[in-house]
Design a protein around this nucleic acid. Sequence first.
DNA 1: TTCAACCTACCTACTAGTAAGTAAGAGGTC
DNA 2: GACCTCTTACTTACTAGTAGGTAGGTTGAA
Lengths: 208, 208
Amino acid sequence: MGPDAIFSGLPGDRDTASLVLDAAERLVQTRGFNSFSYADVARELELTKAALHYHFATKADLGEALLERFAARFASALDRIDAKPARAPDKLAAYADLYLDVLRRDQMCLCGMLAAEYRTLPERMQVIVVRFFNDNEAWLTGVVERGQTEGTIDGAVSPHDAARSIVAAFEGAMLIARPFGDVAWFQATAATVLNGLVSAASVPARGQ
Amino acid sequence: MGPDAIFSGLPGDRDTASLVLDAAERLVQTRGFNSFSYADVARELELTKAALHYHFATKADLGEALLERFAARFASALDRIDAKPARAPDKLAAYADLYLDVLRRDQMCLCGMLAAEYRTLPERMQVIVVRFFNDNEAWLTGVVERGQTEGTIDGAVSPHDAARSIVAAFEGAMLIARPFGDVAWFQATAATVLNGLVSAASVPARGQ
DNA sequence: TTCAACCTACCTACTAGTAAGTAAGAGGTC
DNA sequence: GACCTCTTACTTACTAGTAGGTAGGTTGAA
């Protein structure tokens, strides 16, 4: 479904700046922002550290560019889900697949990783991380609301709370599934959470 | 309820090794394992780095000791919950309070933080982190099972899956609530998740 | 007098970041 | 089409500072 690499930037552009962002992104999502260095990226791209500083003067600039690109790509992934006519549970499943794609590459969600490191991040990066979670919450709230209107989502839960529990569960499931090296851990947990939100009326039996 | 500081080691012992662990623990839970240094701890305790190396020869040793102490303290916190006669939903609420206590200090769960940094950790630390999540899962599975037997937890969900969704949601909620600087974010999300597991039969109305 | 618990003084490796220089090319002018 | 200027995308060689870690000496109490 949809083009691959929605979360992680597989090289579409071939210009150096994009390649730097690609490498840095992968490093952040596997090791963390504080646990990779310009030297790591330089080695990988067979450039010098100074060349990287030419494109991104400081590590904070690099991090910011990373987040901006990620936010744009993520927003368009949500747009793509919105574009298809589907009922809420299917949209939520598609949303889960975004996470799953990242986890399959043994990576953590970029903003999830940066949330852990939050207190050590440059201020402008902090702002974008918070915005990411806000946007997710808003998008999910909308999906849940429409699901309740169409009768596919349990009407007893507040859409806002439901949205929060989805982001929290998905981020947490990713965080934990990665040390376990177990993609199925994420899948089962995500399914359980989403199942709990599905309207009893719209499902014949709730047994597994 | 219960003694304070179940997650974080407020100084009970006054010996240097414990004080080092206390300081390191707080630093890990706010900044991460790779984002604090022996120099940070030394400065705080007004010691030299060499003195720290006397107590914990390497940073890996320090991290391991940190995890062992944390695991022991966490296990005894779970024992304390088990000791009180209470129904499953109350035990799960008490479990949520363990997380809440940490978050109130603007800290991340130790193992949650280390899960994010997993790929950069010394091998022996990795093993303990995974064990922590396994133990949590096992304990929660037991609570959910007993809850289903006593009729307080919805019987339709597999206890194992329910347990996983609880750990995931709590860790994720903590991860996200911290950048928001909003303890209520965690509380609302945790309540939503737990509410979703409570048996419909045991609750008169499910509205908020 | 022994020994735990330090300290001084260091080391090597790495961190982000900078200064100064350069090869290759674009764009305009005569 | 030859010359000049300016830009892009780097390089080499460096800085100050920090990382974890160590060798060897000091101190005070049992």
